[in-house]
C-alpha cells in the first residue's frame, strides 16, 4: 500500500499525465526488481498488480536485455508472451528495462533457489567463466569493412531518462568507423525525448531537456574520439506525444546520419 503511494508521488514528479490505456497484453510499470537464485544463473522478476513477471536471466555484457539493479526501481515495458512461466513469472517478451536513476533502498529482495523455479533450459552463459565466447557476441566488435555508402543512418536507443552507457560503445564505434571510411564531411544528430504510457494509464515523461542532452552528448563523444573535422548539425525533438504503450522504448533514441 505504502509502496503504491510512493510510486504515484514519483511518477507525478517525473511529469505524469493521464492518457489512454495501452493494449491489454502489455505490461508497462515501475516496480522494484526481484532477484531469484537458481541452480545455475539467477533470474530477474518484478511484481505488478499481484502477478509475478519474468524479466530476464543473468547472462553477460553482450545480452540484448540486461538485468536491472537492486537498490533501484525499474521501468518495465513488456508484452505478455505465451511461453511457459520462467522462475514462476509470466514471461514478458519482448521487454525493455530502464533502471531508475534515484536510489531506492527498499528494492532489496533476493529470493533463494527453489527446486520448482529452476530453469528448464541451459542458460547461454553459466554464472562464471564462459565456454570461450560471449553469450551473444562481443559487445564491441570491430565492424566488418563493408561497402561504404555515401550516406548512412544510425540509431542509438536509450533507457528512460538516460544518456550514453556501456551498451552504446559499439554503435558509436560503428558510426566512428563509418565516418572515417566514407570520408564523411557531415553528421546530423537528432536527439529525441519520449514518454512511456504505463498500464495504469499514467503517462511517464522523460526529462524536458533529455533530447537536447542526448544529441549534444553524442556530438561531444564523436568529437572527443577524434571526428573533429566534420560539420555537425545537432537538433532535438519532443516525441512524448507518440507514447501509446506499445514500443514506447524505441522512441527514446538518437538518430545519426553520416554523409559525404
Amino acid at each position: 500500500m505504502k509502496r503504491q503511494v510512493v510510486l504515484l508521488a514519483m511518477l507525478s514528479w517525473a511529469g505524469a499525465a493521464m492518457a489512454a490505456e495501452p493494449p491489454a497484453n502489455h505490461r508497462n510499470f515501475v516496480a522494484c526488481p526481484i532477484v531469484r537464485d537458481t541452480n545455475t544463473v539467477p533470474c530477474w522478476l518484478a511484481e505488478y498488480e499481484g502477478e509475478t513477471y519474468f524479466l530476464t536471466i543473468q547472462t553477460d555484457v553482450s545480452a540484448p536485455v540486461n538485468p536491472p539493479w537492486l537498490g533501484h526501481r525499474v521501468l518495465v515495458e513488456g508484452t505478455v508472451s505465451d511461453e511457459p512461466r520462467i522462475c514462476g513469472g509470466i514471461v514478458l517478451k519482448p521487454v525493455a528495462l530502464s533502471v531508475m536513476q534515484e536510489l531506492d533502498g527498499s528494492c532489496n529482495t533476493m529470493l533463494p533457489a527453489e527446486e520448482r523455479y529452476n530453469l528448464a533450459f541451459e542458460p547461454p552463459r553459466p554464472p562464471g567463466p564462459s565456454k570461450g565466447r560471449l553469450a551473444f557476441g562481443d559487445p564491441v566488435t570491430k565492424p566488418r569493412a563493408e561497402e561504404v555508402a555515401a550516406s548512412r543512418s544510425f540509431e542509438l536507443r536509450y533507457e528512460f531518462d538516460s544518456l550514453v552507457m556501456f551498451r552504446h560503445a559499439q554503435p558509436l564505434q560503428q558510426i566512428f568507423e563509418h565516418a572515417r571510411q566514407s570520408n564523411a564531411t557531415k553528421v546530423q544528430i537528432t536527439g529525441y525525448r519520449a514518454a512511456s504510457l504505463l498500464s495504469n494509464g499514467q503517462l511517464m515523461q522523460e526529462d524536458k531537456e533529455i533530447g537536447r542532452r542526448r544529441a549534444e552528448q553524442v556530438a561531444d563523444l564523436l568529437r572527443g574520439a577524434g571526428l573533429t573535422a566534420l560539420q555537425y548539425e545537432v537538433k532535438w525533438q519532443d516525441e512524448t506525444k507518440r507514447a501509446k504503450g506499445v514500443e514506447d522504448a524505441a522512441v527514446r533514441r538518437v538518430q545519426v546520419v553520416v554523409s559525404r
Partner: peptide, 14 residues
C-alpha cells in the same frame, strides 16, 4: 554491476 550483468550478479573473482 552497471555493465550489463545486473546488480547483484552471481559470478566469480575472474
Amino acid at each position: 554491476n552497471t555493465v550489463g550483468l545486473g546488480n547483484p550478479t552471481k559470478r566469480t573473482c575472474s
